[in-house]
Design a protein around this nucleic acid. Structure first.
Lengths: 133, 133
DNA sequence: CGTTACGTTTACGTGCACGTCAACTTTGCT
DNA sequence: AGCAAAGTTGACGTGCACGTAAACGTAACG
């Protein structure tokens, strides 16, 4: 328990974001730092959430979509209705990600093909130069 | 050769985008439809490019990044300098995508775990209700 | 020959995700 | 006590990716 909570600067350094970003996420109810006086203290929970937020962003989800999904990772309990609603949301999200993965695999394959083609072309060009020299 | 080129509406229907989007992409030099009078006609090349554009977007690349990369798929020839520059860009892009894939796999795993946890919770809740009834 | 459909340019508007001040406390040295 | 560093709350600004409305062209159809 060296660092139970982080102040805003430590949090920024740890995740490579700006203070503005963290305050913005709090305003959007994605993070809930506790207050010591008026200063923010980010808990383990906030750190877990931020990690998920940044990941979600990299996968092209909006902050609002991410906010909804964060509930899934924090559904300690709650009404069945709310829980199953969140669950259904997660199912859609999962399907989305698996589709994305399939497409990503395809894209990687195609890009590699193109690069092989380009590499060949480059090899020819450098050979021509060698011959000319 | 039923449809060698598409007009803007056919193009929109085929890719589920708006005319505004296509004109915007042309302005940004992502597409190069030919003109019949003042009307745009989208070629096979434009269709291939648009497919890649939309894919790139889904993977979180900006239009400007995508523009640079499209050259790779269309480097019919060109100077060695330009070609190898494009190639290097593609290498970075590929690395990016493979990193994204790894992270996506991890995220899918975690989400599945959470969902299993949620499913269990839901099962318990519905069981309680059954007992209570 | 009018009008309807489809397309065009020009230009201003919008939502998202922050960036960037300005003005103000609060805290930690010295 | 004084002063700089770190943090806070507004509030306006910005870049991207389009949306939307106005005014115009033109080709076909009854």
């Amino acid at each position: 328990m060296t660092t139970e909570t982080l102040n805003i600067r430590q949090m920024c350094d740890a995740f490579d974001v700006t203070p503005r970003t963290l305050r913005f996420y709090e305003a959007k109810e994605l993070l809930f730092p506790i207050r010591e006086g008026q200063k923010r203290l980010f808990t383990k929970r906030d750190r877990a959430r931020l990690k998920l937020i940044l990941r979600g962003k990299r996968f092209g989800f909006s902050l609002e979509e991410i906010r909804q999904l964060l509930d899934l990772y924090h559904m300690n309990d709650g009404q069945e209705a709310q829980l199953s609603k969140t669950y259904i949301l997660a199912e859609r999200h999962l399907a989305d990600m698996e589709a994305q993965k399939a497409e990503l695999d395809e894209a990687i394959g195609e890009l590699k093909e193109q690069m092989a083609w380009g590499a060949e072309k480059l090899a020819k060009l450098s050979k021509e130069k060698t011959v000319a020299a």
